[in-house]
Amino acid sequence: MKFTFAHNNLNVYDLQKSLDFYKEALGLTLQRTKDADDGSFTLAFLGDQTTPHLLELTWLRDMNRPYELGDNEIHLAFTVDDFDAALAKHREMGCVCFENTEMGIYFIEDPDGYWLEIIPAK
């Protein structure tokens, strides 16, 4: 028996705002969507055009407030080929939320408060 990653899921409050953020900040593009027949949810699958792994953004019609992430320490990590250019872009966007210069990484925050780790490619 062998398991392989298919996707990660994040619930989002404003789907279009999140789609715009992930495209601008990380270059992720919309691969496909799935809408519930009753309109209760939309799933948007984003890809990096390099790996088969997808990020699923879930919008729920009945969610009437931003998500409360609490002490949720979960994050997704991305490698980047030009770390300095990425950091400059993310600083310009105002989404850098934590820098660890000792480890050579930083984190950005998406519109819903999820942290995304940025790691230089080796």
Rank of each mutant, 00 (worst) to 15 (best):
G113W: 04
E102H: 12
G94T: 03
D81E: 15
Y67Q: 13
L57K: 00
T58G: 00
L116R: 01
I105P: 00
E56G: 01
G113A: 04
R91P: 03
D82V: 08
H75L: 06
L46S: 00
E92M: 13
Y106T: 07
L15D: 02
D14N: 14
L28D: 02
E99D: 10
K23W: 06
P66Y: 06
L26Y: 01
A77Y: 09
K89W: 06
E68F: 03
K17F: 03
G27M: 04
H75M: 08
E109P: 00
H90L: 09
N72V: 13
E24I: 04
H53Q: 13
E73L: 15
F83L: 13
D62H: 15
D110W: 00
L28R: 10
T79W: 06
C97M: 01
K23C: 05
N100T: 11
M93Y: 13
T101C: 07
D81V: 12
N100C: 10
R65M: 10
T50A: 15
E24L: 04
E24K: 10
E68D: 14
P66C: 10
F107K: 04
E102V: 11
A25K: 12
F41A: 15
L87A: 14
V12F: 05
D84A: 15
N72F: 13
A36L: 07
L30V: 00
F45D: 05
D35P: 00
T79A: 09
D82P: 01
H53M: 06
L15K: 04
E99F: 04
A36D: 13
I74N: 06
D84L: 09
E109W: 01
P111I: 14
Q49A: 13
C95Q: 06
A85M: 12
L54M: 11
L87W: 06
G47Y: 13
M103P: 00
S40W: 01
E92G: 07
F21L: 06
L76M: 14
H75P: 07
Q31N: 12
Y114Q: 06
Y22D: 11
R32E: 02
Q31I: 12
I74T: 11
L54H: 09
L87K: 13
L15Q: 07
F21Y: 13
A77M: 07
R32Y: 03
C95E: 05
D84F: 02
G47D: 02
E99W: 08
N72K: 14
D20R: 12
T51F: 09
F98T: 11
A88V: 11
N72R: 14
A88Y: 04
